[in-house]
Amino acid sequence: MADTEQQQPADDGLIVARVCIDDTLGPYEARLDPTNRWNGWLCPRFDLDTVRKIAARTQEMADEYGHDTYDTVHVIDGDARRSEHRAVVLVVRWQYLGGEPGEEVEHAVSVISPDADGLYGIGGGEWTWHAAAPDPDARKENTVSEPKWLADAEAEFARREETRAAYEARIAAETADRINNKLDELGITPIRPAAIQNHRALIIPALLVEADPEEELYSVHADWDATARRVRLAAGHFWNDYAGLLPSRPLNSVEDVVLARREGPEQKPEPQHSGPASWDLRKIAEGAARTIASDVTSHDTGEVVQMLSGVAAAVLHLSDTLARTFTRP
């Protein structure tokens, strides 16, 4: 079912800026309120011509890397009243469309309506828009141009970065598929399958079951353990005592999900306090006591010997006390 996202009229605080999402989208000219952010990311608005460019690029990336990897933007033109041209802007979130045939899916498709200035908010609150570098064509005439060797090096670096980003996105998409395949193998239908964040190689764990605060049951998600190279469950607290998800038990059967709801995150073993090496102190004290001469005749030396004997006895007593303290159950 499609959602309609009605944008608010433009405010006086809007500025014109160039925005992009890394090297995958943009840069595009937009209007935005620099103080209006989602997790630190910008929420830009675009004119219809720019929306068409974004639509073409998102569909191109989805065709190349998979629709489960990227949301796509679509502009549908028509004449609603015959007398005026209309354009409908849609955003399709393909990762939410993996359910059974005929199953109604919320938030999978959004209709983006223009604001009073005819601008469309694309990806605000979902995509990682950020400010782009200044437009090279808009530089001042007295700006010193880059030497050819540096321009070539920058171009090569940009090419490598684009290749790396595409590779990481592909690996992340394959990893999300591994998670979903494991769930399918165990007969688990997730509330939300594993996917990757828009335009980034970050895996969004599959949501298997929501938290239940009344029953004190954790939410359970299926994530990927890169160290063990296997699917691992992750738990979210039912009272939100901590942010995010924490690792739980490996996923081998449906029973692991049932247990993870009750156990929550994996409990790390308490550090073992071995205590001081008290027997080392004893050896030192006994050695010192043995070296103290018993036939000393000098009065001054005798006082020193007596003091050393007292120190040795004190160290022996301390070592025995510490040994009893740290071996006590």
Rank of each mutant, 00 (worst) to 15 (best):
V92I: 11
R93A: 14
R93L: 13
R93P: 07
Q95G: 06
Y96T: 01
G98H: 01
E100L: 14
E100G: 08
P101C: 04
G102L: 09
G102H: 05
E104K: 04
E104N: 00
E106S: 13
H107A: 11
A108L: 09
A108M: 12
V109Q: 06
V109T: 02
V109L: 08
S110Y: 09
V111S: 03
V111L: 06
V111E: 09
V111G: 02
I112K: 15
S113N: 00
S113I: 03
P114K: 00
D117P: 00
D117Q: 13
L119T: 11
Y120W: 04
Y120K: 02
G121L: 13
G121N: 14
G123E: 12
G124F: 06
E126Y: 07
E126M: 03
H130C: 09
A131C: 11
A132W: 14
A132T: 12
A133G: 06
A133P: 05
A133V: 07
P134Q: 13
D137I: 08
A138W: 00
A138Q: 09
A138L: 01
R139N: 03
R139F: 12
K140G: 05
K140F: 05
K140Y: 01
E141K: 13
E141T: 10
T143F: 05
T143P: 00
T143N: 03
T143Q: 05
V144E: 12
S145P: 03
E146C: 11
P147C: 00
P147S: 00
P147Y: 04
P147M: 01
P147E: 00
K148H: 10
K148C: 01
K148P: 04
W149A: 02
A153K: 12
A153G: 05
A153W: 10
E154W: 04
A155K: 09
E156C: 06
R159K: 15
R159L: 07
R160F: 06
E161I: 04
E161W: 04
E162Y: 13
E162S: 11
T163E: 15
R164F: 08
A165L: 14
A165H: 11
A166N: 05
Y167K: 03
E168M: 09
E168S: 03
E168Y: 05
R170G: 02
I171F: 12
I171K: 14
I171H: 13
A173H: 06
A173K: 07
T175L: 14
T175E: 12
A176P: 14
D177G: 13
D177M: 13
D177I: 09
R178A: 01
R178Y: 04
R178M: 00
I179D: 04
N180G: 08
K182Y: 00
K182N: 08
L183I: 07
L183F: 08
D184G: 12
D184H: 12
G187P: 09
T189C: 06
P190R: 13
I191Q: 10
I191K: 12
R192Q: 07
P193N: 11
A194C: 11
A194Q: 10
A195M: 01
I196S: 04
Q197A: 14
Q197R: 15
N198V: 09
N198T: 10
H199M: 15
R200Y: 10
R200K: 14
R200I: 10
R200C: 12
A201F: 02
A201G: 01
A201Q: 05
L202V: 14
L202M: 10
L202N: 12
L202Y: 00
I203L: 15
I203P: 03
I203V: 15
I204N: 15
I204Y: 07
A206H: 00
A206F: 09
L207G: 02
